[in-house]
Design a protein around this nucleic acid. Structure first.
Lengths: 250, 250
DNA sequence: GTATGTATTCTGGTCTGACCAAGGTAAAAC
DNA sequence: GTTTTACCTTGGTCAGACCAGAATACATAC
């Protein structure tokens, strides 16, 4: 509507076509003059205003799309969206597709996130969170002999912990790491079956974490969680070595 | 015409043009048939083989570019790259830019990352890391009265800590959060100027963190760092209240 | 034979203008 | 007032063209 002045300015400032347009839109998005829900003006008009051709504009739009910032709806228009964390999954998938040895490293990030989250959880968790945690805990007990279900239950519990932390950022990050972790999670869990002592350890650890959160003890909560990871890591290290990669994705 | 069995298959499988091409390339990238360093065939040829027009191909290529998977080099070609973590910066910037109240929340993530990193640093830091940390520490002392320089020095120190942790993932995440944090960092630091007691606290805290790392004491390192954040948060809370929102855009 | 400089080719970067199909909408028909 | 319908809008795509500079081949000079 009123955006022509600045656009003209932009036309000379930034670099080449795509870069220019992308930078322009980026700025608009970041500055907040384009907010989630807004609909951009038609591609043709926008392209004209920006002084580029439609294909170029579309490149920029598409770029923003993969970043989850906008959504191009066929025959409707381009609307601004609140960035969807699932984009990160995309990225991580690409990033870690080639190297499989980064799992341990990603694990460090997970530990970081969860340890912080569990602290927050101990402070902020609501009764509703308690319930969810308890349910997750129950499922862990139920599925202790089932690799698949157990893995899921385990993960759910940890996810519940992070959610109880009430930090959007931590939730996003944790969720983003999920993709990579998921892969290893199952295989890791499987070999836990070998050790029978693991079962009690698994249950006990989670229960203690739960108790710590309910008991509003951040310090202890983190401590237990950290130990939980350490012991798990230890078991894993002890058992698994030859991680064969069956990557024949049909 | 007859040389492209898989391509032809793809042509019908996936959805529309862009989606199809993107999915195709994505698969190739993930499967590993396209590996970092490889150069794609010229756009014209590739477009022809995929049965789409060049603009569409470029949309897909550009999309992969923002994901950091490929790099389009002017007049050279499109080469596959190992995903660049800087992509995350893009995303996080977008994701957290719109809400200005998330700073505190992002801070939780920073704390999470750094606390984990400092632990690792205490275990893994090399002599080279020690030196960098010491230099950063020295700069903090030097620039204690300079808001700008001080902010940078402070940040450098923390960055050095994370790097000393030797976890690529943590480094990536920390770096990604930097963008958002940077904004607030300076203003936060400025108001620290008001409190004179802050200066000694700032120096002392960082020095203790440094000592903990050199002393190979993860537990203590995290403890100090956590307190460091807590105290900073406290000061901030005490000083700044009316965080005015400059939302004069639109 | 080597080295240098030049011409040619290749490749991305961009533009123009066009066609299609389906969503939206308002006029037209009931 | 409701339904139907025709039109316009909008994204999705294509085809072919031009440019500028990198890469390379080639020819020339030493």
């Amino acid at each position: 509507m009123t955006a022509d002045l600045e656009i003209t300015r932009l036309r000379e400032s930034s670099g080449k076509g795509f870069e220019k347009v992308f930078a322009f839109l980026r700025e608009r998005l970041l500055a907040g003059s384009l907010r989630p829900g807004d609909r951009l003006i038609p591609e043709r008009d926008l392209a004209a205003q920006l002084g580029v051709s439609r294909p170029i504009l579309r490149e920029a739009l598409r770029a923003l799309t993969v970043l989850g910032v906008v959504e191009i709806r066929d025959r409707v228009g381009t609307i601004v969206r609140r960035p969807d964390p699932s984009v990160l999954n995309d990225f991580f998938t690409f990033a870690f597709a080639q190297q499989s040895d980064v799992i341990d490293d990603v694990m460090q990030a997970r530990i970081a996130i969860e340890c912080q989250a569990v602290r927050l959880a101990a402070e902020r968790a609501t009764v509703s969170d308690f319930e969810k945690l308890q349910q997750a805990l129950a499922r862990i007990v139920e599925t202790i002999d089932d690799p698949d279900g157990g893995s899921a239950a385990d993960f759910d519990f940890h996810r519940a912990v992070v959610h109880a932390g009430k930090s959007e950022t931590l939730i996003v990050l944790h969720n983003s790491l999920s993709g990579i972790l998921m892969r290893s999670h199952r295989s890791r869990r499987e070999l836990l079956q070998a050790f029978d002592s693991m079962k009690t350890y698994l249950i006990e650890d989670h229960r203690r974490i739960f108790d710590a959160i309910v008991g509003r003890d951040p310090e202890y909560a983190e401590k237990v969680l950290r130990e939980h990871f350490a012991i798990g890591d230890d078991f894993r290290r002890r058992a698994a070595i030859g991680e064969s990669d069956a990557r024949n994705a049909s």
